[in-house]
Amino acid sequence: MKKVLTLMLAVFTLLAFTAGCGTNTTDASKTAETAPQAKAEKVRIALVLPATVDDLAWCQSMVEGLKAVQKTMGEDKVEVVTSEKLGSAVDAGAAIRQYATQGYDIIIAHGSQYQSVLMDIAKDFPKTTFAYGSGFETAPNIFAYDPQAQDGGYLLGMLAAMTTKSGIVGIVGPVESGDAVKFNSGVQQGVAKGKADVKTRIAYTGSFNDIVGAGNLAKTQMSAGADILTGSSQQAVGAMRAVAENKGKYWLSTDMDQSSVAPDTVLAAQAYNWEKVVTKIIDLRKQGILGGQHLTLTFADGTIELKYNEKLADKIPAEAKAAVEQAKQDIISGKLKVELPKK
């Protein structure tokens, strides 16, 4: 029996040991909680991402936006923490609640699938600001942001139609829903406007993150004649890389400017300026507005930008660029409204 006791003792020591570690961390987080009250002007932002911080698309664009906010406002004024790969809303919910408990001021849940989770949690933390997107439904302390992806898609579509030599523009879509549909519909309308006899061909991989599948779909698009391609979500970089293999084939990127990875392939990009969006949320919060607004990202306020790849500027005909710029002004002035598909 003596040995049993020795063993039990060992187990308890181990438990006490691990528990000790835990207590330490809790202490640390408690000090962190009291810190902002001492230095009230510091904004603490938590970011929850469905995919990885380096997806070169939706998630990374927000990460870069927050970095820009930190740079502009000062590292000591803005604290940013991130949790990634929370594709499941259950895990995301735990992360969001934990951040809220730890006293973060603004919690950005960067995915449309987080809407229900936020509605559930936000009630329990009335002093915290929550934001999510794409979406429209808000609450007193929830902002919904909503990129008008169709506007950028429209401009890129026009550009593609007036630049293509084969007369075929190919789209490598993920799953036919949400922002992808908005974007694709914009491209389609833009192509039709740009040049009447240019065709848009839309195909979907059925997955948000299968880059190999997207690459293969892009190859099929090209072998069927497309010479300018575009597509959205995490999987799109796979398609872009496949396009980069071929001379004379070009890519139009969305969410963020992807030309850093394929400088000889990306003609232009629709890029979201999350810095402005987040700065607006911070400002509203300072004015005491914790949520309740549906923030659209548009060309008008510069939260969507059209970026050209300088290196490939000569590949775009001058009249195409002029027409696109004109259309952009028309969108900003409200003269041109890009329609959304209504089923």
Binding site: G135, V175, K342
Partner: peptide
């Protein structure tokens, strides 16, 4: 249906 009318089109059923 609200996702359709607002044009956000997020893939989810109604509450």
């Amino acid at each position: 249906p609200k996702e359709v009318s607002y044009g956000t089109g997020v893939p989810q059923t109604a509450s």
